[in-house]
Design a protein around this nucleic acid. Structure first.
Length: 527
DNA sequence: AAGACAGCCAACCGCGGTTCC
DNA sequence: AGGAACCGCGGTTGGCTGTCT
């Protein structure tokens, strides 16, 4: 279908093609002759053949030369896009599989709107595809009032966030640990320096605990659960369990959210070992009310808005969104009104700047030690405030959305509420913390764009070996050149080629892994 | 049957980073 | 050093299609 739609007939070309000489991009990128207007609109099969022929001959890159050398009346940018999104031989066609969808959710939780990076993790898929999928999905879910992420992913993200924060402080500003109240945990700082979502410090059993189970008896269930959440994926089992990182009795929740979590530790065999660690740096408390449900008392928490308890991970956010800044007062308002869907979108995509900054500051990131110090002080103040008045603010938050729905439409679980709450750990809602927030938004270094990949690229062997098949267009070309051009072109327009491409992708991957790079595309096409 | 609406997707646009001269 | 060219990314647009009313 995609191929059919993207390759227009000549008749359609006449109808839809248009010429735009005014585009500044083409003016800058196109080195064409004065008389050759650049075409826009859908590509024709003839143009595709020309482009494929050119790429197979000259390789990828230097896209503006395509027009010069092949006569294709397309700007370089358009050529690159066409190749990357439709003509590359390794592209996977068809709808996303459930596994891919799950992966996208996880990756988005980890990376935010880093479509290109996500595409690297999803072999055969393009950033455009993923982006379109996500945008559609997000709109649908928002419209339905559902959270963006399933509770277990929210939970993972929230824990990762805590680890990130601790990592930042433990290594970059260890002397400020007293500010955080972190005094007596002995986890080596190195564990925090390299954290990313894939390397969470707890085993899958814990990630898979159905959030709902906590509703009945949070503590005992939390300690004893071994069954799986409905959304738990094999991905978690295969990629998020860094056994080599699990030393004996390491803290599972190396973050700082609440005494319960702080008290949980895992042994190497995955069994829980309850041991209070005695640190609690966060500004909210976990409470266990008469309704036998957890409530996370936080000074703020936009994650609750619109029922989106599973907020966007903060490190995925950009900080320089004017619209976000405009939301500040609403966050600080003691009588929060539920935002419109549009504003929720903004909120989902852009949590409070101060918050984002918090999570963005890792030792490997930008070196903004000042910012770290500043936030240390902020956290200290927030911590103090939480002891003074978090009860009231927390109740307000928890009562503000009585009919929250979970990922699958079920009432939101207390665990996911907790997960959402920890995102908002330093989100201002009280007057004092609002001031902190406002001060953070104007502090130096506030315009950092947080990118998780930049934070934790240090331990890449897991990711690259497990997930990345086509790591880059350049390397892809190195494989492509092995293939016969004719066979390749025939595959492009052959409905049966899809499976070949998948096989090719797998074979290419395994070939690389084993040091065999000579997987022939011809051979695969013949399968 | 037909119009409205939403979903989907290809393509475009603008911007920022990098490289080249 | 600085400007131009190139490249890639993320956001947005517009057209097609399917579904609903």
């Amino acid at each position: 279908m995609n191929e059919d739609m993207s390759i227009t007939s000549e008749t359609e070309e006449r109808m839809t093609s248009k010429v735009d000489m005014d585009s500044p991009d083409e003016a800058s990128g196109g080195d064409l002759g004065e008389s050759v207007p650049l075409k826009k609109g859908p590509w024709t099969s003839a143009e595709d053949v020309i482009l494929v022929d050119y790429v197979m001959t000259h390789g990828e890159g230097n896209w503006n030369a395509v027009q010069r050398h092949s006569g294709l009346a397309r700007c370089g940018k358009s050529c690159r896009l066409r190749w990357a999104n439709h003509l590359r031989p390794d592209l996977k066609k068809g709808a996303f599989t459930p596994e891919e969808e799950q992966r996208i959710v996880e990756l988005h939780a980890k990376m935010g709107n880093k479509w290109a990076r996500m595409a690297v993790e999803l072999p055969g898929r393009t950033d455009n595809e993923i982006k379109n999928y996500w945008n559609t999905r997000i709109k649908r879910r928002q419209r339905a009032g559902l959270p963006i992420y399933p509770p277990d992913i929210s939970f993972l993200v929230s824990q990762n966030k805590q680890n990130e924060e601790l990592g930042a402080f433990s290594s970059a500003d260890a002397q400020n640990s007293d500010v955080l109240g972190i005094n007596n945990f002995e986890i080596p700082a190195v564990e925090f320096k390299k954290l990313e979502l894939n390397h969470l410090l707890y085993p899958p059993q814990l990630t898979d605990i159905p959030a709902r189970s906590l509703l009945d008896d949070p503590v005992s269930n939390f300690l004893a659960q071994g069954h799986r959440a409905p959304y738990s994926s094999t991905y978690f089992l295969s990629t998020t369990y860094p056994s080599k990182r699990m030393r004996g009795s390491e803290s599972v929740f190396s973050g700082s959210n609440g005494d319960l979590l702080n008290s949980l530790q895992y042994q190497n065999d995955g069994s829980l070992l309850a041991q209070p660690l005695g640190f609690s740096s966060c500004s909210h408390n976990l409470t266990y009310d008469d309704n036998r449900s957890f409530s996370s008392v936080v000074p703020g928490g936009h994650a609750y808005l619109n029922g989106n308890s599973s907020s966007e991970p903060t490190w995925a956010m950009k900080l320089e969104l004017p619209s976000l800044q405009n939301q500040t007062e609403n966050w600080g308002s003691p009588h929060l009104a539920l935002p419109s869907l549009d504003s929720v979108d903004i909120l989902i995509q852009s949590p409070p700047a101060g918050h984002s900054e918090s999570s963005s500051l890792s030792p490997s990131n930008s070196g903004l030690l000042d910012a770290v110090l500043h936030e240390s002080q902020t956290m200290k103040a927030s911590h103090d405030n939480s002891h003074q008045g978090n009860e009231t603010s927390g109740v307000a938050v928890n009562n503000s959305c009585p009919d929250l729905k979970g990922w699958d439409g079920h009432p939101i679980s207390p665990l996911s509420q907790f997960s959402a709450s920890v995102f908002s750990e330093y989100t201002p809602i009280s007057e004092s913390s609002l001031h902190e927030f406002l001060s953070m938004t104007t502090m130096p270094g506030c315009k950092i764009k947080q990118e998780i990949g930049d934070l934790a690229p240090l331990d890449e062997e897991d990711d690259t070996s497990n997930q990345t098949i086509f790591s880059s267009p350049k390397t892809q070309h190195a494989n492509n050149h092995l293939a016969s051009k004719d066979a390749l072109i025939s595959c492009f327009f052959d409905d049966c080629a899809w499976d070949c491409k998948q096989i090719h992708a797998v074979a290419t991957s395994s070939g690389r892994a084993s040091g065999h790079n000579s997987c022939s595309w011809d051979a695969m096409s013949a399968v």
